[in-house]
Design a binder for these strands. Structure first.
Lengths: 325, 325
DNA sequence: ATAATGTATGAAAAGCGTTTCAATGCAATA
DNA sequence: TATTGCATTGAAACGCTTTTCATACATTAT
C-alpha cells in the first residue's frame, strides 16, 4: 500500500507538500496540487488513519459507556449522541459493560491510551475514585447528578420527576404506592429512591420492602411484577415504574390477569416511549436523546476550545397525562 | 506523558525489552522484568494505543454499519455482535447511516484507512459495485442474502419466513392479505416482497398497491397503518408485518378503534420481540442476536486465520404461534 | 570436545502522517 | 534601492511501538 512518501516521489514534491494538499492547506501552487492528486489517483493511495491518530494525538472518536445496547432507554441516549457526533465528524466507540467493573475500567483505559478523545458514561458501577484517576486523560461526561464533583455531567432530574409523580399519585388519593426500578444502586436510582421515601414520609406512610420491585428493565419484567403483585397479601394501589417498557409489561400482563388499570392498580411511568402512548400510560417525558446530544456537545466543546461553558446541566422531565393513573 | 523509551532508560534496558515485558513475551530475565514494571509504575506509563495500531497495522475494532441505532431490530443485532466482540477483546465502532450513501461510504473508507479491521453491514443502500471496491481492504460481512457474490454474509431467510407466514394465513382462510414493511428497497425487503407476490400468485390473487404499507418501523407507524386500513374501501383481512414493533402498534391502536384481532384483522408479525408475547401476537422468531454473533465470528475468523469456513450462512425463522391470527 | 539449541538482550528498521523551521523567490512598500 | 512581507517548498523532527536481525552466553546432545 502506497504511503505519503511514495506519493511525494511520484508527484515530484516533498511529503510536506503532499500533506498540505491532502489536508487542503493553502500555499501550494496549483500545478503541484494537481500533480499530487494525480499521484494519489495513480497509486490508489489512502491515508493510514492510525498514523494520523498517532501524529495528531487524537482520534475524533468518543467512547460511549453503557450497560446494555439493546435497551430503549440507552438506545435513545446513543441516538442523541450519534446524531450530534455525525454532525461534527466524530465517531462512536461502543463499550457495553453489563455493569461489570472490568469493562468500565477498560473503557477508561482506552481514554488514557488515547483510543478515544473523550468518554460519555451513560451509566456506571465503578466508584468515583476510579473516575477521578482518569479525569486528566480527557473529557468525561456522566449522565447523572455528580453533585458538585469536578466532572462534566448532563443529567435528568430524576429526584424531581419521581417526587412529582409521587405527588401526582397522592393527589389522586393513593397512599399505598410501590415502585419498579432497574437496579437499586447507581446515582439515578438513588435519586428516585430518595424521592420515593421523602414523599412517603410526607404522608406518614412507612415504606414496604415488598412493594419495591428491583431488576425491572424490560417488558417481560412487567410480567414478573404482575405475578408478584397478585401474590401480595396487601397490595399497593399504585406503582411508579422507572421505564415505559416495564410499565407496558405490567399493563399488558395485568390486563390478561384481569387487573383493571387504573382502578385496581394505577401505573405511572417514565420515558415517554411511543409504547406508552399506544397503551395510554401516564408517563414523564425524559429528554434522553437531548441528553445524549448535550453530552456530546460538552465533550466536543471541551475538546475543541478547551473550555466548558457549563460543567453540569440538569434536564427536566415533563408530565404526559394519560389514563393509566 | 512518558513513552516506552523513557521506560527503557529508567529501567536500564532497551525498548525491545520493555516491549517484551509489556506484552508478556518470554526471554526476559526476571529482574529486568521487574525493573520495567517498576519504571512503568514510577512514570505512570500507559501505552499509546495509536502507535500500537500503526505498528501492528490493525486495531481490533470492527465497524458496525446500520441505519438506526435505536430500533430494536438493529439493537438485537448489535447486542449479538457486542457480546461476541467482548469475548475476543474487540471493540465496536458504530456507523449510524440513516441510509445515507455518504455515511455508508464513510464507513467503507474507514475500513480502507485501517480504522477498523472489518465491517459488519447490518443494512445498506449503496450498490454492490461500491462494496466490491472495498472488498480487498478487509473482511466485510453483510446481513443479507448476497446470492453467490464474493462477500461474506450471515442472513435470515426472509423469503422462506414470509412465504411460510403467507401460507399460514392462507391456511386460516385468508385471501385478502396486505403487508407492512420498513422500506421497499434492500435485499431483505425484496425477498419478502417476492415471497408475498409468489404466494398471492399461487392463489390467483392479484396484489393491491394500497394493501402494501411502506415506512413501517416503529410502534407509532402502526397507528398510521390502522388509520389507513380503516379508510380503505376494500380491506385486507390479514396483514403480514415485518416488525413486532409495528404489529404492536397495529394491535394497540386497532383495539382503540374497536378492531377485533384476529376476527376483523389478522396480524402476523416477525422478530419475536417480548412485546409480541405480551400482546399475544403470532410471530416468527428471527435469530437476530445470533446473526450478530455469527457475523462477528466470521470477521474474527477471517482476521485471525485468514480462512473462512463458510462464506455464507442462512438462518431460519421459527413460528411462534399465538392468537393474533 | 564440538555442534546444536535455547535463553537473553539491544540496535535499528519499519509502520506513516503532521508539523515546525529554515530557506528561497518574488512582489510590494518605504 | 533597501526593506518588509507574503507565497512556496522541502528537510527533518516528532509522535510511539513492534518486530526483525544480530549477538552473546549457557546448556545439552553427539
Amino acid at each position: 500500500m502506497a504511503n505519503i512518501r511514495e506519493i511525494a516521489k511520484v508527484a515530484g514534491v516533498s511529503v510536506a507538500t503532499v500533506s498540505r494538499v491532502l489536508n487542503g492547506y493553502p500555499y501550494v501552487k496549483e500545478e503541484k496540487r494537481k500533480a499530487v492528486w494525480e499521484a494519489v489517483e495513480k497509486l490508489n493511495y489512502t491515508k493510514n488513519i492510525n498514523a494520523v491518530h498517532l501524529a495528531k494525538g487524537k482520534t475524533s472518536i468518543v467512547g460511549v459507556v453503557l450497560p446494555y445496547v439493546n435497551h430503549p432507554y440507552f438506545g435513545a441516549i446513543v441516538e442523541g449522541i450519534s446524531r450530534e457526533a455525525l454532525r461534527y465528524g466524530y465517531h462512536l466507540l461502543l463499550f457495553q459493560t453489563n455493569y461489570e467493573v472490568q469493562k468500565e475500567l477498560e473503557a477508561l483505559e482506552m481514554l488514557r491510551m488515547k483510543q478515544v478523545d473523550g468518554l460519555i458514561i451513560c451509566s456506571r458501577i465503578v466508584s468515583w475514585d476510579v473516575i477521578d484517576v482518569y479525569k486528566d486523560d480527557g473529557p468525561i461526561v456522566l449522565c447523572e447528578d455528580v453533585k458538585g464533583r469536578d466532572v462534566l455531567s448532563v443529567y435528568i432530574n430524576h429526584y424531581e420527576a419521581f417526587l412529582f409523580a409521587m405527588k401526582y399519585l397522592m393527589n389522586k388519593g393513593h397512599r399505598k404506592i410501590g415502585y419498579c426500578i432497574g437496579r437499586t444502586t447507581g446515582t439515578n436510582s438513588k435519586a428516585r429512591e430518595a424521592a420515593y421515601y421523602d414523599a412517603l414520609r410526607n404522608i406518614h406512610e412507612s415504606p414496604r420492602k415488598e412493594w419495591i420491585f428491583d431488576h425491572c428493565l424490560y417488558i417481560e419484567d412487567g410480567k414478573r411484577v404482575v405475578n408478584e403483585w397478585l401474590a401480595l397479601p396487601e397490595k399497593p394501589t399504585a406503582l411508579l415504574v422507572s421505564s415505559d417498557q416495564v410499565a407496558a409489561g405490567i399493563v399488558l400482563w395485568g390486563r390478561r390477569e384481569g387487573i383493571n388499570i387504573p382502578e385496581d392498580l394505577a401505573v405511572f411511568s417514565f420515558d415517554n416511549h411511543p409504547i406508552a402512548e399506544a397503551l395510554e400510560i401516564t408517563t414523564m417525558d425524559l429528554p434522553l436523546s437531548l441528553m445524549g446530544t448535550k453530552a456530546f456537545r460538552m465533550i466536543y466543546q471541551c475538546l475543541e476550545t478547551g473550555k466548558i461553558a457549563k460543567k453540569s446541566e440538569k434536564l427536566d422531565a415533563r408530565l404526559i397525562e394519560r389514563s393509566s393513573v
